[in-house]
Design a protein around this nucleic acid. Structure first.
Lengths: 210, 210
DNA sequence: CGAAACGTTGACCGTTTTCAATTACAGTGG
DNA sequence: CCACTGTAATTGAAAACGGTCAACGTTTCG
């Protein structure tokens, strides 16, 4: 569900990658530094921050384990933001030169990368759509529907609700309340002590509009 | 700012593309259809919807003029969602075969596509980060900071606030109120009748924490 | 010129956030 | 094996905030 490994399909690269360790507060790169590496966060947490000329800052992204970040830098000469470790972190680094070399050498590698990027775009757009739903109950329900498979649609919980709440842009309390409400009104059934959730079949009568 | 044209850099493709017209409510493609084309919306509005096995649906994306959509389909045999026109729409279609052929023929085209996709990922992540900010005032301010350049940081308004409000996930009223509040407290100065906004230099004293 | 969309502000209401408290459980060190 | 600590799950009550409705001036555009 989260960002897949962009270069997982390129063995040349995974072979050449190195692990870097950062303590909380350490910088991985600065705005304006020449791009030499591309990264994937293994453990910890890291944030990408852009500083304005007057010193104010904006957070562009908070990377979590598994996330690749600064992909756009691969096509840029310099980084356009700072990367700071939030917590002690381990980061896999792939040289940009190797990356570009692999691409020109092996066209199929390119397909894999474009595919991974397109997949991320799809995921991010779906998430944005989700966050556009105002009602907490409807938002949680929509999320469940996106995760569901089978008939009746069922979701197996793989992460904590606390984590999911953050993805949904809700507090965990609001999420629990939404779940309680969905349960109460019979729109979901929580099974096996919360390990799975079955969605009630929607009586699709006047709901034919997109 | 919105989704750039993925294949704009590939002349072979733009030459071969065709325009399709859809009336409101018409389908462009169905879940399960083999992928023959990739698209860019020229005018109108179109939504991507996924249907669950029990008939319930989730909106995955609402495409607006300029957006390319279903990019991920380029690397998939079948579409995994439905595309329905919300309004009467014009859509540019590029054959998937042509697309893949162009990629294997012209490796530089690939760079352009990967770059466009990576740029979209960057944008979408920044937007997600923005939407994670609960307070309307802080959200608008963060948006302004992202747009700002120069010293003092200044934003030239290129779009309507109504449009920006939607991107921010706020109503236009909430956005105007936030702007008024920022003005009132001196954190921004609206110049030239709203054509430009200057951000007050933040006295960055105890704000050193990310 | 008139309609439609934009810009702007006020008041009210509903929902979510916040704060607070409690239970349950997993890992840890004695 | 068991207190001990930290996180997840859960619910309640009050406060804050943004959404909705309403109203009005302004700009744009056919």
């Amino acid at each position: 569900m989260t960002a897949p490994d962009i270069w997982a399909d390129v063995p040349i690269l995974t072979a050449k990658s190195r692990i870097r360790h950062l303590e909380a507060g350490e910088m991985l790169f600065h705005q304006g530094d020449p791009v030499l590496f591309m990264f994937q966060l293994k453990t910890g947490r890291l944030r990408l921050v852009r500083f304005l000329e007057d010193g104010a800052s904006v957070v562009l992204h908070v990377a979590r384990p598994g996330d690749t970040f600064a992909e756009a830098s691969a096509f840029s000469a310099v980084y356009h933001c700072d990367a700071v470790a939030d917590l002690a972190s381990e980061i896999e680094a792939v040289s940009k030169a190797d990356f570009l070399a692999a691409l020109t050498t092996d066209p199929t590698a390119f397909l894999g990368i474009a595919q991974a990027l397109a997949g991320q775009v799809r995921d991010l757009r779906a998430r944005a759509e989700l966050r556009g739903i105002r009602s907490a109950v409807e938002r949680v329900l929509a999320w469940l529907r996106m995760q569901a498979s089978g008939n009746p649609p069922t979701v197996r919980m793989r992460r904590t609700w606390t984590e999911i709440a953050a993805e949904l842009g809700l507090t965990r309390e609001a999420t629990y309340r939404a779940l309680a409400e969905l349960s109460r009104t019979g729109r979901i059934v929580r099974q096996r002590g919360g390990e799975a959730i079955r969605l009630a079949t929607t009586s699709l009568s006047p709901e034919t509009r997109g």
